[in-house]
Design a protein around this nucleic acid. Sequence first.
RNA 1: GUUCCCAUCGUCUAGCGGUUAGGACGCGGCCCUCUCAAGGCUGAAACAGGGGUUCAAUUCCCCUUGGGAGCACCA
Length: 481
Amino acid sequence: MPTASLLEGFTMTDKAKPVLRFAPSPTGMLHIGGARTALFNWLYARHTGGTFLLRIEDTDRERSTPEAVAAILNGMAWMGLNWDGDVIYQFARAGRHREVAETLLKQGSAYRCYATAEELNQMREAQRKAGKPVRYDGRWRDRDPKDAPVGTPFVVRLKARNDGETVVHDLILGDVRFANDQLDDMVLLRSDGTPTYMLAVVVDDFDMSVTHVVRGADHLNNAARQLQIIEAMGWPAPAYGHLPLINGPDGQKLSKRHGALAVEAYRDMGYLPETMRNYLLRLGWSHGDDEIIPTAKAIEWFDFGAVGKSPARMDYKKLDNLNGHYIRETSDDDLVAELTAFLERRSPPHILPMMARERLKSAMASLKERAKTLVQLDQGAEFLYADGPRDLDAAAGKILGPEARALLARTLPKLEATDWSAMDLESAARSFAEESGLKLGDVAQPLRAALTGKTVSPPLFEMLSLLGREESLIRLRAYAA
RNA sequence: GUUCCCAUCGUCUAGCGGUUAGGACGCGGCCCUCUCAAGGCUGAAACAGGGGUUCAAUUCCCCUUGGGAGCACCA
């Protein structure tokens, strides 16, 4: 029976609507795979008007940390995945889990196993040597409890059926069948009396009225085992959906070696949450030929039927392209705010002066065309941050040789004669180039190098005008000879 | 080893028995152009292999091969 106290938190739960959950274990950051699992759960809940719960699986006291919990919550918040009701902490429910184990024990669906760790290791070793499948051999399954050694610690194991088969009806993979004799008697309660994950998920999902268990495909095998517990308790089974895993660009398992696994790392690399949602969604899910799928559309369209079955690889080039799209799509004001916040998050924080923000705002329309990430946006905007002559980067230094400096010097009077509007500046430069038998580009590149310190920038004459006559001339004169 | 899952361009994918096998990223070319982008046009690029089923297989079935996951008193 569900405990009353637990259900109180979910008064908003509509019994007729789906209930989904994301259930990470707080042993590390929210990584990209977890983020996608959370996203798919969230999308389906929002699509159906159902409920999306967050449960922290912290039954492993050794490895669970408060820092990891915070990281997961932050990651979810950044991704824009809001959950309904309060966060549920699994460890707090250990009493209830034990209660279920007791019930199982009482009704004969579970038994005490007194095998020691060394004993089990030997057993597995022998099985491996003999080339046999490695699994618990059921040595205490049918023993008379009277044989139990007194005062020895024991675990509680499920007395699983070993005939017939268990079928996982999967929303994504279809029916997956497991012969019951392949599944051994899993531990429900450890020798210290704490519940294992296998027991805890089943009990919590039932108590939380979860209707759809959607998680990584690494749990597919577990589904069969969990179904056995559910069957033993006579509970209704949830619908399952196992998402294919995400691999690294090389097709191998996504690991630290590929870098940047935590969702926060993507934030720090300058990706927008909307980009991450769109990218992760398309990694394994499709809607015809659609590529650009804003979150609102995703909610409208999402369904498990269109989830692919095969594992996908991360493609950073495509991520960049998508991010560039969403950066261009973002309003100039919002981007200034994003970039400002991004720079302030840095260590050490970079606080932009008011003047720089003003310039940023004016230049943003041009700047954002050229950036795929906030990092690139920052780099492209650097020349706006402070006054005075620019330091030249390598390429700009190469351009501003003696000849170019002389040309720059000859160009200056022509510019000074204008009203410093972009249009006037450009036509002055054009006619000067024509008179000198040069192309506009020949005249423009030295100007650009001196003005920005780089060979790449937003349109030159716009930038001259934006920086103003005074500031521009200071920068240009510094390199005119 | 064993159980389970998967298999269309380099990558993400559309396809749900009959298609010139489509789109996107990336790559090449052209156009635009003060640089770089953005944008437009365009090119190269795929049904892992072998058996069946069928008038007809990318599509359905089997095998092989290749990837991946699970096999703990972790989750």
